[in-house]
């Protein structure tokens, strides 16, 4: 399905575009981080060290007012003193309110985000693409019905739908053992990783509509192609035409949509975690929710560092998507034929 021409175009676009390079760098970096989290994270992300709480990231120091009570002469005296909290080299990005290492949390959070993003997108595509291709190829009443359903679910705010579904099913989460830790490497790291199944299902069901619409549009235009007619004239049935001719030619916009969807789903997962629906406590969104309360009291890093992580991964994936779109788009390919 991937011809030499596609690969050549990918290379050409990559060479010409600085943004594509940045995108690829970001995405590879995040993938690497997520895969080898136990080796990259300096601490167990769930380990609480209360005596080391609220440490700022390296390069920042924080003054805070600490109130201590002492028994002086049988009376309780409250002494308020201004102390300076200096960062600790062991926690380069600081710690949160429970003394958990921020860097480790962000490294592990990448796992949740990516797994939910990728699985959610796959689920959405597996539901949406067949529905869309079927509707677009057959048109008529089937199409009308399926697309009205899609319109309705599109009109429904996705977050509200997610919240409603979680309310209905509860929060299911599965513990997936971490192969590195089980195998004995990095034994001080958490043994398993929590996969928020509900969140994956919810984001998949919320986002299938996008795939259905794109696939339908492609199928609508492809069904009129003469090679589809030729295939029917040769006696092919609808299913094999959709499989052999429609899907392969519709795949490019679907791939591009998928990259955009991964980014969108990461954001949705963060929102769900932020609202406390995800079932895992190791997630960028969860940390943002936690850190929110501390922004006003000066501990800005607890919320904003995971926020930056989300931002960079979304940017990275979108840039990657742009690169794919530009190199797979036949319009761009045709530029040379000016004469």
């Amino acid at each position: 399905m991937v011809s030499a021409r596609v690969i050549r175009n990918l290379k050409k676009e990559f060479r010409n575009s600085a943004l594509a390079k940045i995108g690829l760098l970001l995405v590879v970096g995040i993938l690497f981080t997520a895969a080898f989290a136990p080796f990259i994270a300096p601490h167990d992300p769930t380990e609480q060290q209360l005596d080391q709480s609220e440490l700022p990231p390296l390069g920042f120091s924080e003054t805070t007012e600490r109130t201590t009570s002492q028994m002086v002469d049988g009376e309780i005296q409250t002494v308020t003193e201004t102390v300076e909290i200096t960062p600790d080299a062991a926690h380069p990005l600081g710690t949160d309110s429970l003394g958990r290492d921020m860097l480790s949390r962000i490294v592990y959070g990448a796992r949740t985000s990516l797994v939910v993003g990728v699985l959610g997108t796959l689920l959405a595509a597996f539901v949406g693409v067949p529905v869309g291709l079927f509707a677009g190829y057959h048109r008529g009443n089937v199409d009308d019905l399926l697309m009205r359903i899609a319109d309705v679910s599109l009109a429904f705010p996705s977050l509200v739908l997610a919240v409603a579904l979680i309310g209905l099913w509860g929060r299911a989460a599965v513990n997936v053992p971490d192969p590195f830790v089980v195998a004995g490497f990095a034994s001080d790291m958490p043994e398993s990783f929590v996969l928020p199944i509900t969140v994956v299902i919810v984001v998949g069901l919320v986002n299938w509509v996008w795939f259905a619409r794109v696939a339908r549009g492609e199928a609508l235009s492809l069904r009129g192609q003469e090679y589809v007619k030729a295939s029917r004239a040769l006696g092919a049935d609808d299913t094999s035409i959709i499989w052999n001719h429609v899907l392969p030619n519709a795949i490019t916009p679907i791939i591009v949509l998928a990259t955009v969807q991964v980014a969108a789903i990461i954001l949705l997962e963060s929102s769900l975690s932020f609202l406390g629906f995800s079932g895992t406590t190791l997630s960028w969104g969860f940390d943002i929710a936690q850190g929110r309360d501390y922004i006003s009291s000066g501990q800005w890093w607890i919320a904003s560092l995971p926020g930056l992580a989300i931002m960079f991964s979304v940017i990275g994936i979108n840039l990657l998507g742009d690169w794919l779109r530009d190199s797979l788009d036949p319009g761009i390919e045709g530029e040379g034929g000016a004469a």
């Binding site: 003469e226 090679y227 007619k229 030729a230 040769l234 006696g235 092919a236 052999n244």
Partner: peptide, 29 residues
Amino acid sequence: AQIVFQDPFSSLDPRMTAGDIVTEGLRIH
């Protein structure tokens, strides 16, 4: 009974090789 179309561009699936296109009927049957 078979058909040959007008547009030599849209009548061939761009993602299939000449050999696959020519033998599509044989595969189907």
